[in-house]
Design a protein around this nucleic acid. Structure first.
Lengths: 156, 156
DNA sequence: ACTATTTAAATCGCGTGCGATATAATTTTC
DNA sequence: GAAAATTATATCGCACGCGATTTAAATAGT
């Protein structure tokens, strides 16, 4: 019983951890062209989809803590890709909006997904298998992620 | 076509990244009891399975770079859990061995997998689904990981 | 109204994670 | 067998990622 559990977890959790880093590495050459990191890319994905959101909106979508998001956004602001400003309705909230430069980056990033699939093609998983993998991970994400914030987590 | 790719990758890569961090968070309360971090736990897993290996052995098993492993091992050494010493055969190599304290930690860690499964039980994935998830991730890990080192990656 | 609680961001400290580079020991090449 | 290439590890700098704490603003409780 305990042995079975032990085997299960040793085999599962490490691959998630390792694959996550390998995927980030796969993105790197494409993101280097834009001068941004993978977490910065994720934050921009959120903003490209819906501009003018709060720090907390981004934090929840990416399942990150404030102390990770705040410095990340400051770097994006220093790069001139976003602007941060206090909300006038609620002065605790900080609104994040894309600059023209940040918006312009979207079209330059448009080819990344396509090229990334090329990098991942050596895995020889079929599209169906990838979809199934994503479906299972989404279920884990929803149940584990909702323990911290019951909000919608979708990046789709 | 390009749109299909875009949807596929936006939906897949982020869940891997988020789930990886959520799993690390799930380990944290158990690892806190031992005073170690998740990457340190992984390094110890390698050593508990096979003692007296080189830095490179650990680096390859964990799919990490030297500049991550070296400081990590130094911290484990400072904690008194391992010892590092130059190989006499090849003085470039550094051999890593468990101290009695490091070896004693294994039995204290023995209940972690079981308890972790409890933390993950809210995901309501069946054992078969977990196994399938792991199988797919292992295929990704093998093909992506082998681009950097053709060695065996198994932690099992 | 006024204090207590909650909420939104920010700050601090520390441990990864990695690109780039350095250093030293071994192996290869000619 | 000496120079060149390779291998094993370490060092440096920077960007996360997060626990813990802080600050300020809004809301709740009385």
């Amino acid at each position: 019983m305990a042995t079975e559990h032990l085997k299960l977890e040793n085999q599962l959790c490490f691959p998630v951890y390792a694959v996550s880093r390998l995927i980030t590495r796969a993105y790197q050459p494409f993101l280097d062209e834009l001068g941004i990191t993978y977490p910065q890319y994720l934050a921009l994905l959120v903003l490209w989809e819906k501009d003018n959101v709060t720090v907390n909106d981004i934090r929840q979508k990416l399942v990150l803590n404030t102390n990770t998001v705040t410095p990340l956004l400051k770097r994006l602001e220093t790069m001139g890709l976003i602007r941060r400003s206090k909300s006038t309705q609620d002065e605790r909230k900080v609104l994040v909006e894309l600059t023209p430069e940040g918006r312009a980056l979207e079209s330059r990033a448009a080819t990344i997904p396509e090229r990334l699939v090329g990098s991942l093609s050596t895995t020889d998983l079929s599209v169906d298998e990838w979809m199934d993998l994503k479906a299972k991970l989404d279920r884990v994400l929803t149940s584990l992620g909702s323990q911290q914030n019951p909000t919608d987590l979708g990046l789709d």
